[in-house]
Write a protein that binds this DNA or RNA. Structure first.
Lengths: 204, 204
DNA sequence: GCATGTATACTAACCAGTGAATATACTCAA
DNA sequence: TTGAGTATATTCACTGGTTAGTATACATGC
């Protein structure tokens, strides 16, 4: 069973791809379902065969960004040289480079949840909440592995700086704010390590 | 001249008041001009007599929030006890109390600019940019007066934490993130003062 | 009679979602 | 192998409702 059935799967993903580009660059309510269908090269009625509603489509758009986004941050962290503070700072610096691209429009999760703030139970918002929670959990685990005793609040502080830089850079279109946030993160992680690292774990 | 002309002014402000409530709680594109007119107790046509377009109305909504918002932050800072780090932290703690109110929906400037991110020249976005710049400038001046040598980057870092907490708390509906941001701000300001305060200025 | 302000009633476009028909491809019995 | 039947996938054409903005007329006070 299901031998050739991944051809329709391709259609579904083509729709999500078109929706991603439009929703991310224009916003949710600014993009009509017709516009998504046209961008995907098919009819609105076909789109409604694959998705129950526009809300479902929005949720699929964010759902498709969840894992790739987290992987990217993890990869940036792992590829960076230096100690823990420098590796955290590297995430901000890599992000600053991305943010200077004209198509960059901030964090899709935050922008969507800001636009749909009047619909608290919206499925897309749940996905955004889960995404940010996963990122925070990864940070906390990373800090714990490094022996930082204040891993939980430190992870929150880094998250706050990251999401703050998303918001501020999206507003001012000035990626240097992201580097400033990276320096603040560097300071906070460094201070937390001085205060209470189990002083093992200093690999390499 | 202009003796009784403040009666129409009252109408204009009634419209802005209605627009503020609706735009802030529901979002820009989610609120129709008819809805604003109805909330203000008059006709859409009358509204269009006082405002050229919906975009103008949105700009007026944010423009009316600019000074009061800044004054509030300044007042919170001035009313707080303790040294500079504690006074900065107090802003976050006061904000956390506000954020626990069910009507709280984050920062109107940030949410509007997120929703209108596809319209870079929009007048409302310009107002949002100016607002955040004013706040940053006030922070920097405050730090400079206290003799902090790294006043400029420190002001940016505090701004990043503040806007980060707006975004995160609006997403998770958990004001404790704001207190965490306040602790981070406390640390950063404290570290900056230890590094380079001209060690005068310690009033009171 | 002339400025300002307010209301009624309208337009032209747009939008989320659907009904009904059609095309394609896979299954299974003869 | 073939042909009828069935589930999957797609399209055209439509509906009912909403939206930003306007043409026109009416009121009110100077």
């Amino acid at each position: 069973m299901q031998t050739m059935t991944d051809i329709p799967r391709a259609t579904r993903e083509r729709i999500i791809s078109a929706a991603s580009k439009l929703f991310y660059s224009e916003g949710i309510r600014a993009v009509s379902v017709d516009a998504v269908a046209e961008k995907a090269g098919l009819t609105k009625r076909t789109l409604y065969y694959h998705f129950r509603s526009k809300d479902d489509l929005v949720a699929a758009y964010l759902g498709a960004r969840d894992q790739p986004n987290l992987s990217l941050f993890r990869r940036w962290f792992e590829e960076a040289d230096g100690g823990l503070p420098a590796k955290v700072r590297a995430i901000f610096n890599r992000l600053a480079r991305n943010a200077s691209h004209p198509k960059w429009k901030g964090c899709g999760f935050l922008r969507t949840s800001a636009e749909l703030a009047n619909l608290p139970g919206h499925p897309a918002i749940k996905i955004g909440v889960a995404h940010k929670k996963k990122f925070e959990a990864w940070l906390r685990a990373t800090f714990e592995e490094a022996g930082v005793t204040t891993a939980a609040p430190l992870a929150r502080q880094i998250l706050l700086l990251l999401d703050g830089s998303f918001a501020v850079v999206q507003l001012h279109r000035d990626p240097t704010y992201m580097e400033t946030a990276g320096e603040a993160a560097f300071s906070l992680v460094g201070a937390a390590m001085k205060a209470g690292p189990k002083s093992g774990q200093r690999k390499r």
